[in-house]
């Protein structure tokens, strides 16, 4: 398992290198190479997750090690889909190193699964996990797009047409892609929360428990809901949308890690090491 992880990590790092080279030299084949490496890494990544699933009979998110592997997988998955749809080549400079970093941290974590957990392996749980991870990866992407937007906007407003101005795509493309990833993320998060409620009801008999994880997930959901609402009604786009997607992702990271580290709750064991 470890060796496969190193190979995947290697592919992600190679992909990162290719994207960095692309950022500087701007040759298209570099970007293509980066995407190929990422795709190969992704396939292997999918394989080890599938292997983990078959071996244990549980979707492998039972400790921080497995959770992070899953998170890295979701990021690459969402990036590849968006890259295919929007041809936003430069985003690889964010997605490739991010997935490499997540995988590297996962690699550092001990891999023994926590033995005794009251998990009922039903449809609701699996849907809950998959949708939540895809949703979170989309938000991660939206955050990256927000950063790129702010860089590009600053270049145009400050009339400073340097390195990034030339290499980054138009504001419009960054904005629409960011918007699309928030829409996807929000949809997935909503579905993830609902399936989570249904699972909670079926296992613990309650939909909502005022568990910190639940509360913070609710807050995250509200932030993105507000962002989408304002965009549709008064047109919160561009800069404001970019800043909010960065803030939203920060809150999301807190929900993902912080709640488990600083507060107690029934998701605690999944991020234990």
């Amino acid at each position: 398992m470890k060796i496969v992880m190193i190979i995947i990590l290697l592919f992600y790092l190679l992909s990162t290198a290719a994207y960095v080279a692309y950022l500087f030299v701007q040759k298209n084949y570099m970007q293509q190479a980066g995407r190929c490496m990422l795709t190969v890494g992704f396939l292997l990544h999918s394989l080890i997750i599938g292997y983990g699933f078959v071996q244990s009979g549980h979707i492998p998110v039972r400790n921080l090690h497995e959770t992070l592997i899953m998170a890295g997988w979701a990021i690459v998955c969402v990036f590849l889909v968006f890259q295919y749809k929007y041809r936003l080549k430069i985003l690889g400079i964010y997605a490739a190193p991010l997935s490499a970093l997540v995988l590297f941290i996962a690699y550092q974590m001990p891999g023994e699964p926590v033995p005794d957990q009251n998990l009922f392996n039903n449809f609701w749980l699996i849907s809950h996990i998959v949708t939540i991870f895809i949703g979170e990866a989309s938000f991660a992407l939206a955050c990256g797009l927000g950063v790129l937007y702010l860089i590009q906007e600053h270049a145009i407003k400050a009339k400073n047409h340097g390195f990034f101005y030339r290499r980054l795509p138009s504001l419009e493309l960054l904005d629409t892609t960011g918007y699309a990833s928030i829409v996807v993320g929000f949809t997935m998060l909503t579905v993830g929360l609902i399936t989570g409620f249904v699972y909670a009801k079926s296992v613990w008999g309650r939909f909502w428990d005022w568990d910190p994880k639940e509360v913070w997930s609710g807050i995250t959901w509200l932030i993105y809901a507000a962002l989408l609402h304002e965009r549709l009604t008064v047109g919160w786009r561009g800069r404001r949308s970019a800043i909010l997607s960065i803030i939203g992702f920060a809150v999301l990271l807190f929900t993902f890690f912080g709640v488990n580290f600083f507060l107690k709750g029934h998701h605690g064991e999944f991020t234990r090491w």
């Binding site: 145009i156 101005y165 138009s170 504001l171 419009e172 493309l173």
Partner: peptide
């Protein structure tokens, strides 16, 4: 060219 950087197309 600037217009393209803002609007894309």
């Amino acid at each position: 060219e600037l217009g393209r950087k803002i609007f894309g197309t």
